[in-house]
Design a protein around this nucleic acid. Structure first.
Lengths: 195, 195
DNA sequence: CCAGTTGTTGACCATTCGGTCAAGAACAAT
DNA sequence: ATTGTTCTTGACCGAATGGTCAACAACTGG
């Protein structure tokens, strides 16, 4: 009923997400956001609140995308291959995305706000990923694809390994090599041929 | 032959290291460093150069300490237990140290300076840790402690897992639980009882 | 005692930060 | 066309940033 906004908020959010993902909360200035989104500062504030709220919205968008990535792991036919594919896709995506690792984990490290609502939401998102891993592992166990064991513990290890792959990449290891080392983990659990 | 400095440079370096470790390069201001070290700004600049050089010196100090931690892994009797102990000690130390993860990996993520000498040195340090892991694994294989396999690949996975443990801790997993999941990895390689 | 050298102190610099303010522009309803 | 509401633009704010400058203090060699 008044002047319509000239930009697409979701598009601006996507571009902001890219920036935050690549450079972290403190590494992105309001001027950077203006430039990347093509949206004036005041408009960003009107639409999102402040810098931290914008980051929170970007993280939410990221989580929504992650949820789509997680869907196969929550499916009934999930198994080790699903996990392997998840890791591969994550590595490829991060390769394209300046190898920035998982934004949720990056948020957990960030000194943006100590123990705010944001950190809690990031922690919840991480828990969700671990739950997806655990679900896939349980299904695989139920199918006899891998020997019985503590699925939650294994899921935690998968989470650590997957996120560690990003560090591995940063330290100079190739994408193929990083993926191979993760497959080593999954293969060591395969029931048919151990180790 | 002139006025002697009133502070211990290594002590100042140690305190700076703590700060950088906990908050990252950009998260520490010169005023923070003055306060933490009790040393005036000009004295810091005279002794170290500038902020980035101070960070580099702190990282070097960190690497020297790491080298001491790595020594058992390079020993002749190194094995899976040595690896397990390394992971446990690392977790405990990080627990005391505000759970900040490995400074080398943090440096690799930091947007302090793109592709500077610092990044190269951090990458070299990471390679050194992976080499230590590989050495311990090779010794263990030679002793028949675990089945034969690609030690370098396994070392990379260990590196990823160990560094992922920090992310796991951040996401709310207990120290004991994180350690247990890492032991799961080592145990899956033990030759006696697989999985 | 007196130079000469080095360390310390605190004020100071330009720049950038996140955030705000006020004026104008674009629309819907009347 | 006028009014009311929202969006946009650009100037502006105080605070904090990394870094520098100049005066002063402490020591050594003559």
């Amino acid at each position: 009923m008044a002047r319509p906004r000239e930009f697409d908020p979701d598009d601006a959010l996507a571009r902001s997400l890219d920036l935050f993902w690549a450079r972290g909360f403190a590494g992105v200035s309001l001027s950077d956001l203006e430039e990347a989104t093509g949206v004036g500062r005041q408009s960003l504030y009107a639409a999102f609140g402040n810098k931290e709220a914008l980051y929170a919205a970007a993280l939410e968008r990221y989580n929504a995308a992650t949820e789509r990535w997680l869907a196969p792991l929550f499916a009934q036919d999930a198994g080790l291959d699903t996990l392997r594919r998840y890791a591969r896709d994550a590595l490829v995506a991060q390769g394209k995305h300046r190898a920035s690792g998982c934004l949720v984990v990056k948020t957990l490290w960030d000194r943006g706000l100590e123990e705010g609502e944001l950190q809690a939401s990031a922690r919840a998102a991480a828990r969700r990923v671990r739950a997806a891993f655990a679900h896939a592992l349980e299904r695989a166990q139920g199918r006899g694809e891998l020997a019985d064991g503590d699925a939650a513990l294994r899921a935690d290890l998968c989470f650590a390994a997957v996120n560690g792959l990003a560090a591995l990449r940063r330290s100079g290891v190739s994408e193929a090599s990083a993926l191979a080392s993760f497959e080593l983990l999954l293969d060591s659990w395969r029931s048919g041929r151990a180790r």
